[in-house]
Design a protein around this nucleic acid. Structure first.
Lengths: 205, 205
DNA sequence: TATATATGGTAGTATTACTATCGTATATAA
DNA sequence: TTATATACGATAGTAATACTACCATATATA
């Protein structure tokens, strides 16, 4: 049941958007009942939090496994950026999660997880721990490349947010960006983020 | 009535957040009725769109008036960045709009205006024209500084989004950033954005 | 004087966001 | 084997939300 909620939530949110997403519709899609869904999640906001945490953890996992034998921090950052834009296509971890659609959901709805009046309260409950951990890992690599760089955390969070924003803009508001994307081919975004970080940290791509 | 809706909406959204914001509560605050509010706006989403458009136009206006006699594009970009982070404190334009609270609303809720399933439809109706115009103006200045820079629009939109994201992080999720803000004093954010753009476009701050 | 416009007031509906209660199948623990 | 917990389905009900419709009236304008 729990797994099915996650699986079907990703599909349904991707399909109709988070605003239109309700537990009634989800239950119908799952051939279950609204009350059953409520036993697992307080409300739809809690589902969104769960999904974004899952995504953050997945990206952390990808970064860790793919940088395990890498010593050059520049190469590590390259792998990090690749994980940001292409997390969906890496060998899927779990059978019941469509990583590709999860990435779509994160791009479109991810920010709504923490852009609420309850941030501070939820932050105290450690809801955003995974995001902080992800940013800490990336900031660490940035500092390895240039220990004198003053904004490692800001650059880390900006690279993550930029990758989602610029993909979204390319898909829906192309006049706000210079990159183009074609269904799950985000290589131009990746190239741009590599260019930005190399320029900021003073090395050649 | 129209002016009052705008004025009170800014105050109410700033106070309780966009999710909890309803026309019933707004009408009560205005000492009017729900039905009257609906005569002006289809729904609360339309109000948000109106508010962010107002904000985008206000920033465009600020940039235009403050760069009118400036020829150095680097100086222009500095003024642009200042407008992004400090639009609220510039001599207020209209008596009935609290620019300061409008900026708060934009930081917290702005992205919800276009992160919906209706983006493409609304984009066709030119709802996001002002944002595009703003980015076009900034991209133009970026290209003036470095005509060979390949991502003027992406950098422009990233600077705008970053200024809001990093302020929000500093206020609510400080581990995601390196800058600090103290009520409406965003000078560290401004400094960081100036540093980033100078580094990316190859000049000294 | 006629008419349009702006607004207030009341009422009503469908959907959303829950909460509560009861029943039952299955798994586990004594 | 029996007791018991758990996992889930089914039904019902409530308060709030997101509207729509209709009527009244004050004021401005033609």
């Amino acid at each position: 049941m729990g797994q099915n909620i996650i699986k079907q939530s990703i599909l349904l949110i991707d399909e109709i958007g988070f605003e239109a997403f309700t537990f009634k519709k989800l239950a119908k899609k799952m051939q279950s009942t609204e009350a059953s869904v409520y036993r697992y999640f307080e409300n739809k906001h809690a589902v969104l939090i769960y999904l974004v945490c899952w995504y953050w953890q997945w990206v952390i996992y990808l970064i860790k496994t793919n940088t395990v034998n890498i010593t050059d921090p520049k190469k590590k950052l390259e792998i990090i950026i690749h994980s940001f834009v292409a997390a969906s296509v890496e060998n899927p971890s779990t059978k019941y999660v469509d990583e590709n659609k999860l990435h779509n959901v994160l791009i479109a709805e991810g920010k709504k997880a923490y852009r609420t009046k309850e941030v501070d309260k939820e932050n105290k409950k450690l809801f955003f721990q995974d995001y902080k951990e992800l940013i800490a890992i990336v900031a660490e690599v940035i500092s390895e490349i240039d220990p004198s760089f003053e904004y490692p955390h800001s650059l880390a969070s900006s690279l993550f947010e930029m990758s989602n924003d610029q993909i979204y803009f390319a898909q829906h508001l192309p006049r706000l960006t210079d990159v183009k994307v074609a269904e799950n081919k985000y290589s131009e975004v990746e190239q741009m983020l590599n260019y930005f970080s190399a320029k900021l940290l003073g090395y050649k791509v």
